[in-house]
Amino acid sequence: MLELKHITKVYNTEPRHLVEVISDLTLSVADGEFIALVGPSGCGKTTLLKMVAGLVPQTSGEIFLDKQAVSSPGKERGIIFQNFSLFPWLTVRDNIAFGLNLCKMDKQKKETAVNRYLRITGLEKFASFYPRNLSGGMQQRVAVARTLANNPRLLLMDEPFGSLDEQTRSLMQEFLIELWEKERKTVIFVTHDVREAIFLADTVYVTTPRPLAIKQKFAIPFARPRSHALKLTKEFFDWETRVAHAIATDFGE
């Protein structure tokens, strides 16, 4: 279980100019739960994920993963960035192996793990390619495989499909949902695409503009496994309207 307790983040930008990005955020995510955060850009979503990843310290408040306080990066928490962030000097295979190569591990085991994620992400044929020679969708699959190879319990995804074209994005959503239905990791998925959030998540949180706080919580009841046909149903459309309405309305209305 992941627990965020009264998280506040203040960036100290120019001298004596403080920007409060996150304000008193409390949130808990159950094991194996897939949550989506939907909010306007610039509201602090990336900052929040980086804090959970241990890459950025919070100003106040506490983050616990299974009762353990989070204060630095750890392998049990994997993050996938918006613009892939692959190591351009490593091939697809070596990118995926990056985390495994950092720990003392049996060579054979390493090889097996890397091959497994090459297969899962359908990248076997591209194992010796450099990232620059891959399409955006493939690069993002490498990023997913690289993070999964580390076997994290918690997966943090920061608008991972935001820069992909519509068709590739649909394919990636399907790929992710299949993967998740198999592995059942805890996922925090950040997006500004309402349909994507409803299609993927168990719980959708709509957040406020800066400073980030939870505005409304939606438990999405659709059964799993989910397929793309779901997106065409009236119920899906109703949920979309409901969530979109929550985003559009101001506080106090």
Partner: peptide, 12 residues
């Protein structure tokens, strides 16, 4: 790029 440093740190 800072994001590569972040990616590396997050991977351990």
């Amino acid at each position: 790029p800072l994001e590569l440093i972040d990616a590396g740190r997050a991977l351990g």
